[in-house]
Design a protein around this nucleic acid. Structure first.
Lengths: 189, 189
DNA sequence: GTCTATAGCGCGATAGAC
DNA sequence: GTCTATCGCGCTATAGAC
């Protein structure tokens, strides 16, 4: 009935946009392509989102929200070791499950700008994330290590070379690299 | 003399393009902006380069050439340990010296495409680079580790957070992270 | 509230005069 | 070697049909 159809358009649009973004990149995807895939006109797309940037932000938002949840959960752990383990597990799992989108995050300035904006809106978010990894003591090596880890895992996880790997294998492999960098022994059985 | 002026235009154009690219990104830099900065018209720019992609490729080329030299030098080392040390030192040094451009490499699809193209043109190049790090034995963990390392160092080295660091400090810190991932003890005095 | 039709402006790119 | 003129297309914007 109409309910199904009506509230669907915006959601369908985001789904279609995500698919096209991962196929052609953000800049390689025109509003016309999105409109055509939905069977509507450009102006109809423009009715739901004021700008193209607003679309990219809406596409990226759920994953960023999820990441915020992971950081909060990690901070709630009692020991520093448990905090690092929790963040590592959660971050790797997030990257693996959303490989295609994460690859976009790290290689497309369209999405990158959206992420920057969202991260800056809750100003303290990035600091909170890094703080879990580097601890309250701001050591230079620790900061750079954390950045190498986060960027490396995100990019390697989204790279075409690891695309053939199944989720479980990729997750375990990335986790192994992360644990090594942080001197955390394997915890799984 | 006219010689100074004549052969200068193409070089000046590349320098100006690089500056504008690092300021506004590749996609954020129009041919009009480049032309205006040089005091000529768009069409004049087109005389020197057939397409915008050709400009980005020419901007990226010197650094890629340098990286090829580093890989070749590394492969010429006698022991695997020396090969890894050489590549690590060379790669980190390259990233640090060309921070701004490397940041573009890893965050802008315009440059990324140019790099892809150049890397694919000498098809074996990327394989040769990875082979130095993973050895002749293709182990899954080693491959992912190498990717995390290369991507992490490149992105962390170009990130705004480390911009205030001087070259020497950044180089030593990135090297430390790399050595840790590869179980290589510090070699410097 | 949802969409179509239409137009403005800037972009990369090309053709051809000087 | 540099210019003017022009093209097609992409994002944005508005007016108005349903």
């Amino acid at each position: 009935m109409d309910v199904v159809h009506a509230e669907d358009t915006r959601t369908r649009l985001l789904g279609t946009a995500l698919r096209l973004f991962t196929e052609h990149g953000v800049e390689g995807t025109s509003l016309q392509m999105i409109a055509d895939a939905l069977g509507v006109t450009k102006a109809a797309v423009y009715y739901h989102f004021k700008t193209k940037a607003e679309i990219t932000e809406s596409v990226a938002e759920p994953v960023l929200r999820e990441l915020e949840g992971i950081v909060d959960d990690a901070r709630a752990q009692r020991t520093r070791g448990a905090q690092i383990d929790h963040l590592l597990d959660g971050f790797v799992d997030l990257v693996v499950r959303h490989r295609a989108l994460v690859a976009l995050f790290s290689s497309d300035p369209g999405i990158a700008r959206a992420v920057e904006k969202s991260v800056h809106s809750s100003e303290s978010f990035k600091n909170r994330l890094l703080e879990v990894l580097v601890g309250p003591d701001p050591d230079l090596t620790a900061i750079v290590t954390a950045q190498v880890l986060l960027a490396g895992i995100a990019i390697a996880g989204g790279s075409p070379e690891v695309a053939p790997l199944d989720d479980e294998t990729l997750r375990e492999t990335l986790l192994g690299v992360g644990r090594k960098l942080y001197n955390r022994p394997r915890r799984r059985t």
